[in-house]
Write a protein that binds this DNA or RNA. Structure first.
Lengths: 219, 219
DNA sequence: GAGTGAACGAACTAGCTAGTTAATAGTTGT
DNA sequence: ACAACTATTAACTAGCTAGTTCGTTCACTC
């Protein structure tokens, strides 16, 4: 990267000072650090040191450790929204749709360990930060809308029961996926089984779908 | 063991000094404090202040903040052993036995929020403390032995499938119970549903048993 | 080409926090 | 009764930690 100072018109924006970039870098580092050490355990100095900027900038952009943490939380939470949008419910058999939703969620949890850790951490803090955040408005809807549509169509075709609560189904999916990643450490120490072992991945992935389908299936 | 310390005048043991008692009090207070604030968030001074003794005693008996935390963890973990021992598997129909085991676990989680919080906290710390502890030896066995017996008898009577992994069943139970209590804060903020609401208690309790039975049932 | 505000950096500080020191009071064994 | 040990207290400290001060540099405008 050859530094193109001042006159950086067309080619590449090699800006020495770049608010957007600095802000984003702080957020990235802070996300890793908070996920790693927890809110109380994370150190502002440590976050700053891992940045290419200074602690002063961190306060300049985010105001306080807490506000930085909230910014991290908000960004992490918006990510999981995308899961449901990957699903083309209308063109799938309800059984396949539910299975795919479960698998997508399963995969998302597996590939975003920082997010899961942040959720655990935030729960230890009784969601006091998330509660005061504005982002969560409209976070519930996408997840539940897709599930509701799947369940309704499944009931229409006679494959599913009609009295299944979408939020209960969502809870089962979350419980399974969250437990597998969030609690794997104590589980592994006690039972000597690594729930994230790649050899067992397919087993768990199938198990979740089966569990769900057995639960919603018409009898 | 419990010797009559000197001449306590009739009434009761008005012992001014009592190692056992002091130790136990510190452990109790520390359990609440660590469960409440997490390992990093808890303050040694605060724990000491909530005791009828001083900080020095805390170091006298436990050596360090970390060793005190480990002692708290160890005591908390031994409690859940009792759940399986309440169950008289041999005199129950396998279906009822599994249902009862699920319900006992469900109830234990609900009535021991501190324990669940400690488990969450310990997972945020990647079980590094539990790993170095000796207590966990033999912690896995009671839970799995009971489950194995239930599943085996259920298979013998033709009610259950024969290829069910006891640890998988245990995992489903834990995932459900742990998620319901450990993640209720973020869940409630996002979905406006309190999973611990007493109105929904029976619903969830039944749902877990149903889920399990559908899963192990012979087809 | 000088002024202006946004972006940045180094060094500082007040208060906190785990752990200690040193001395004292109660308890036990003989 | 007296030594030896156990339990206990208050005050102290070195290092850490979130947040700040104050001054500097860059980019853009007119």
């Amino acid at each position: 990267m050859s530094a193109q100072p001042s006159e950086a018109p067309a080619g590449g924006p090699e800006r020495v000072r770049d608010a957007e970039r600095t802000r984003a870098e702080i957020l990235d580092v802070a996300t890793r650090e908070f996920a790693d050490k927890g809110y109380t355990g994370a150190r502002v100095d440590e976050i700053a040191a891992k940045t290419s900027t200074t602690k002063r900038m961190l306060y300049y952009y985010f105001g306080s450790k807490e506000q930085l943490y909230v910014a991290v939380l908000e960004r992490a939470y918006t990510g999981i929204r995308s899961v449901e949008q990957q699903l083309d419910v209308e063109h799938l058999d309800p059984v396949d749709a539910l299975r795919q939703l479960a698998e997508l969620t399963f995969d998302y949890h597996e590939s975003h360990p920082d997010f899961i850790r942040l959720v655990s951490i935030e729960n230890v803090h009784r969601a006091e930060h998330l509660e005061r955040s504005a982002v969560l408005a409209g976070l519930a809807n996408p997840a539940l809308e897709v599930l509701t549509r799947i369940l309704r169509r499944g009931h229409a075709t006679g494959q599913f029961r009609g009295d299944v609560d979408p939020l209960d189904v969502h809870m089962i999916i979350s419980a399974f996926c969250v437990f597998r990643t969030a609690n794997r450490h104590t589980f592994n120490v006690i039972f000597q089984r690594d729930m994230l072992d790649s050899d067992r991945r397919e087993h768990y992935r199938t198990m979740l779908s089966d569990l769900l389908l057995e639960h919603v299936r018409a009898r």
